[in-house]
Each structure stands twice: as C-alpha cells, then as structure tokens.
C-alpha cells in the first residue's frame, strides 16, 4: 500500500511510468474506461477546491470507478472535532483510495499513517501539491519535449505557493535546470526549499523582483496567484496581490517557444489577453492534470491495463 504525500515519494522511474501511462490514456481512452470498475475514490476536501477535486472525480469516473466524499470541512466529522487519524481509518472502511486536501500542513501525511488504503495529498496548506506537479510535468514534457536544460521562471507567491515548492523538488532531479525566482521580498521561496533541495543539489537559482528583466532567458514561466487564504493579515494581502500581472506587452521580450504555465485559479495575475497567445499552456495543464491523476490512481490501486 503506497501513499503519495510529496512528489519526492515517487522515483524518477515511477514518474516516467506515470507520464507514459498518461500519454497512453490520451491516445487510447477506451482501453482504460473500465479499469477501476467496482473501486471507490474518497475525496476528502477540508478546504474549497474546484479544479483539483473535480479533476480527481473526473479521473475516477473516466476509469469506470465511483466517488464518495465531501467538499468542505463543515460537512465532515472534523466539524464535530474528529481527528484526521480517525477520519482516515473510518474512510478506509468505505473507499479503496483517498484524495485529501487540508488547510493544515502535514494533514495528508498524518492520514497516511493511519489509513489502510493509499492516500494522495491533494494539497496541504502552503506545503505540497504533488498531483499538480504531475500535471505540470506532463505539460512540460508535451510542450518542451524534455526536462533537462531548462530555465524556469517562478513568479508571484513563492512563499505559500505549494505548487511551486513541489515543482522545484521535482525539476531539481533533472540535469542543467535553472530557476529564476521572481517575487516581492515578503513572498520569497521558504528557506526549507533552499536548504533541502536547491543548495544540497547545487542547483543554480537567483532571486529577482522584475518579471520583465527575467523574461528573455526563460523557457518556462510559471505564474502563481497571491493566495488570500494564506494571509493572517488582510492588509498584507491587499498590498501584495497585484505585484505581478502578466500582459501581452510584458511578453514582448520572451522567447517564441516560452511555455506559460499557471496552476489556476487565476485572479488577475495573467491578463485574459494572454489566453490567445500560443505560448499560454495553463488550460492544457488542467487537462493534463486529469490524465496524470488517472495514471496515479491506477498505479496506487495496482491496476494493470
């Protein structure tokens, strides 16, 4: 029984396997239509989510399985004070696999310690979001055709942006990858990401404030939203929320084959006018996310197709 709490729980070989499965699903969807017949996915979402929850649910339905769960903490027993461990044990009696999102960091890990079925971290606070990273990796593979020798710009909220932390961990395993971190001082990448990943692996990175100055050297631009729900102080959020807004003008210095990504939802950090640019890949990312979640569910349920 395997759980995936952090993207680093998966080896490079396993990620390659998931990418291959996802591409096979894209090419031959009918082959997988009954793969999870009779299996149930529990989506335990203690925090609001549209994309990730529906992506997991769509993934399970497209595999022929069923879905149970809740979409906010108030409709779960946690509102009565039930612990994560007890919830995990209980749901293990009903479902074959769990996808959990929780505002507190480490909650899915705690669940995985007591659950008797696989647990997938569907986002824990500002910490990790491994299935978004799987979506990002499939997008990079399909758009760039490689994982090595890439300069990746990460822009916006790098402090609380869990997708950014997971993506850095994942991409740091490939050779000749450089990161350009573009953020205001208050939203810089946390020290644990530098000390656990970037520094020990000797990965080149720089921290800058200007998106325009960084633009010409980027192969990938990963935009993020400044997340209101991560701030304890609304004044700080209001001060920082409009720091970076990507517009067609700001793309004037960018490479022709730049890949613009965003985990979504966006608020205003990517102007709608950018959506028509051929370099905008963020809606492809959404679709890729569903395929990678299908591949991950198959792997963790040990279903051979």
């Amino acid at each position: 029984m395997r759980s995936v709490i952090d993207i680093m729980d998966l080896s490079l070989e396993e990620i390659d396997g998931l990418l291959n499965t996802a591409e096979d699903i894209i090419a031959n969807p009918k082959k997988y239509a009954d793969a999870c017949r009779g299996k149930k996915l529990a989506t335990l979402f203690f925090e609001p989510s549209t994309r990730t929850r529906l992506s997991f649910e769509a993934a399970m339905y497209e595999l022929g399985g069923n879905v149970i769960g809740f979409s906010e903490a108030s409709s779960s027993s946690s509102a009565k004070g039930e612990s994560i461990s007890d919830t995990a044990r209980t749901i293990s009696c009903y479902a074959d696999i769990i996808a959990m999102r929780h505002p507190k960091e480490g909650a899915p890990y705690v669940a995985s310690l007591k659950a008797t079925v696989p647990v997938i971290n569907a986002g824990d606070g500002g910490h990790n979001h491994p299935t978004q990273t799987l979506a990002d990796l499939l997008t990079i593979k399909r758009e760039k055709g490689r994982f090595d020798s890439l300069t990746i710009g990460l822009c916006g909220d790098l402090k609380f942006g869990r997708t950014v932390h997971s993506l850095i961990s994942a991409m740091s395993r490939y050779s000749n990858v450089r990161f350009v971190m573009i953020s205001p001082d208050e939203l810089k990448i946390p020290d644990y990401v530098k000390q656990n990943v970037l520094i020990p692996k000797g990965i080149e990175y720089k921290e800058v404030k200007s998106l325009e100055e960084a633009m010409p050297e980027l192969d990938i631009l990963y935009m993020t939203r400044v997340q209101k729900e991560r701030f304890f102080n609304e004044a700080d959020y209001i001060r920082l929320k409009d720091t970076y807004i990507l517009t067609p003008e700001k793309l004037s210095g960018a490479k022709d084959d730049l890949c613009i990504m965003h985990p979504l939802p966006r608020v205003n950090e990517i102007s709608v006018a950018v959506d028509d640019d051929k370099r905008a890949c963020y809606f492809k990312q959404v679709l890729n996310g569903k395929y990678m979640r299908m591949a991950l569910i198959l792997k963790l349920l040990e279903v051979e197709v």
Partner: peptide, 21 residues
C-alpha cells in the same frame, strides 16, 4: 512553531522532528 502545521489543531499528535542536515 508553524501556525499552519497540523500539530496546531491535532492535540494528540506528537511533535516529531527529523535530522535533515
């Protein structure tokens, strides 16, 4: 000390730290 850590709400959970470096 992280106010977003699960240990802040799960009172029964032991605080465990691992040597990383």
């Amino acid at each position: 000390k992280n106010p977003r850590c699960i240990t802040t709400v799960e009172q029964e959970l032991q605080h465990v730290f691992k040597l990383c470096d």
